[in-house]
Every structure is written in C-alpha cells, then in structure tokens.
C-alpha cells in the first residue's frame, strides 16, 4: 500500500465578496472536497475555468486560506496540519511544496538572468550558505531541466516558450520540493513543445521522487501523464479514479462531456460528439441540487433538489451522481 502525501477532508475555501445591505456574501470556490494524493503519483485535476481547480491547488500549497475542513501533508519526515500551519513550520513547508505557473512569459522577471531567477528561491529561503554552493545547486537543477551553462547567463527574452517553461520548472524545483503543483503548465505552449515539457515533468517525477498535482483543462494531456484523475465542477469533486478507469468508463456525465468535447483528429468524424450546452454557472449564484443539473443531458427531478455526495463504491472509482449506476452503460459506450 502506498502512502498518502496529501489528505484533505471536507476541504472548503470561501472568499468574502461585496458588502451589501444584507451583509457579506461568501463565494465558495472549493466546496467540501475530499482528496487523497499518493506519494510519488502524478495526480491530475481537471475542470472548466471557474471549477475551483486552481483554488484547490493553492489551498494545498497554503497560498489561500482554508476556510473549512482539514488538510494534512505527511512526507515521512514531517507531518503538517495545513489548516493551522504557521511560523517556522510554514517556512519549512514552502521548501517542500512549490508551484509552477501557467504562463512562462509572465512568470519570469525580464531584468534577471536565468541564473538569478533559478537561484532566487535558494537565497530567499536561506538554503545555501555560499555563492559557490548556490551556483552548484543551480547548475545541477538546470542540467536536469535540460538547460546548459550558456543559457544561465542570458535573460528570459532570449528564450522560446518551451525553454522558458523549463526555466520556471527549474526555479520551482531548486529548493528540492516533495510536492509540486503544476497549474496549466503546458496550456500556453505549442503542441510540439508541450510534449517535450510533459516528458520532462514525468522524468523529474521519477528521478526526484516528486509528487505532482497537475491542473489542466485538457483531458488528452492529463490522460497521457497522470496516474490518477479528479474532475471538478463548481467547487465540487464529481469524479475521482485511476486515469485508465476514467477513460474506459467515465461515471459522471460531466466527465463524459469533457471527453466528447475534445476535437477529433479524424476529419470525417465531425460533429458526432455529444456537446455540452450552456456554460458553467457563476459560483456566486449556484444552482440548487446537483450543481451540474442545469447542463446535464440526463437530469431528473431528484437532481434539481438533492445534491449527490461523492460515493466510494469500493473499486476506487468515486463519483457524485444520483444516476451513475443506471447510466454506467450509456456513459461507457
């Protein structure tokens, strides 16, 4: 049995918005989510914009405050309760948990050399004592991210998108983290380079024993890289299972719709897919019952009033849908 690195129960993140006559209202970005991320896994988190996937990732990094539930991080050396983590322990957690950003053009300071960009976390966190030590560490991680010495002397503007993303990765990994959140890390890249960055992330996961939380809206990318897949909709977790299980037989109509929406490479297979109507509702004005019922092709009256909970059928394939058993054959087809 493998160990769990991140364990969250009933995790909620709410933001106070507005200050109207009736007091403040709360925007629930992440709503009672249970999540277990196994050590050494490549955990995929998918959903449309506004589904709360980024907020969940940030909450696990303790970059936004957790407003409800519990979250624990245990890597064998330390065991942290993320809801109360503070002071020197929080500082230590920052070394262990890191983030790779989406846009490699915006994430790198144009005024710093690549060497300084990668070295900055070491200096800020005080991980190295001498300049020689810093340089050695920077060179080591840069080599792992396929950057050479010549690259380190230059400024970010001289690099292509793929190279810049490799610099961002090196910067995130220089402190030797155990847990890395990659938030849409290939979304801004061309397909030709996307494959290169994905392969690099997989390689780093294996070599450095890093656990990745890979956030993406692109199911085809997730399918190829992640061992485990969790799908979010309006702050809720609607399905969670090993990637292959989800691909073989999705259990939630939303997951099925996400698959159908991927444009087929076959020019003769146009428009055969089942399309999802409408858009994700605003998180400040959530529908009652199942959050997905306004767009679900299989909606029944029960869905409009009663919210389904995430069921754990025992085969490791969790789903939150009232009708998943009866729809199983339809959705697997």
């Amino acid at each position: 049995m493998s160990e769990t690195l991140i364990k969250a129960r009933d995790l909620s993140v709410g933001f106070k918005i507005g200050s109207g006559f009736f007091g403040k209202s709360i925007l629930k970005a992440v709503d009672h989510v249970d999540i277990d991320i196994e050590k050494g896994s490549f955990f995929g988190l998918v959903g449309e914009s506004g589904s709360g996937k980024t907020t969940l990732g940030r909450a696990l990094l303790k970059a936004v405050p957790i407003t409800g539930g519990t979250a624990h991080y245990a890597d064998g050396e330390v065991d942290y309760d993320l809801t109360t983590l503070a002071g020197p322990e929080l500082k230590d957690y920052r070394k262990r948990a890191q983030l790779i950003f989406q846009d490699p053009y915006a994430a790198l300071s144009p005024r710093m050399t690549v060497r300084d960009i990668i070295a900055e976390p070491l200096e800020v966190m005080g991980l190295t004592k001498t300049r020689e030590e810093t340089d050695a560490r920077v060179r080591e991680i840069a080599a792992k991210c396929r950057l050479n010495l010549e690259h380190l002397r230059r400024f970010p503007h001289a690099f292509s998108g793929g190279q810049r993303q490799r610099i961002s990765i090196a910067r995130a990994l220089v402190s030797g983290p155990k847990f890395v959140v990659a938030d849409e890390s290939v979304a801004a890249l061309d397909v030709s380079i996307q494959a290169d960055v994905l392969n690099l992330l997989k390689e780093l996961q294996r070599d450095l024993k890093i656990t990745f939380l890979f956030i993406s809206h692109d199911l085809s990318v997730v399918a190829h890289t992640c061992d485990h897949l969790a799908v979010m909709y309006l702050g809720r977790l609607v399905e969670s299972a090993p990637t292959r299980e989800v691909f073989k037989a999705p259990r939630h109509p939303y997951t099925k719709a996400l698959f159908s929406a991927i444009p087929s490479l076959d020019p003769d297979d146009r428009g055969s897919a089942q399309k999802l109507e409408g858009e994700i509702p605003s998180p400040t004005n959530q529908p009652p019952g199942c959050k997905f019922h306004t767009r679900c092709p299989f909606v029944v009256d029960r869905c409009k009033v009663e919210e389904p909970v995430l069921e754990h059928p025992g085969d490791g394939h969790e789903v939150a849908c009232h009708r998943w058993r009866e729809l199983a054959d339809t959705l697997a087809a």
Binding site: D196, S220, A223, H224, T243, F247, I262
Partner: peptide, 14 residues
C-alpha cells in the same frame, strides 16, 4: 506530438 486518446500508452514525441 498530439496526445492521442485511443492509445494512452503511446509515448509523446515532441
């Protein structure tokens, strides 16, 4: 280089 859905084992070749 495109991830293919019909063969998840196929390596991604940049």
């Amino acid at each position: 280089a495109l991830p293919k859905l019909d063969d998840l084992d196929a390596p991604l070749t940049p």
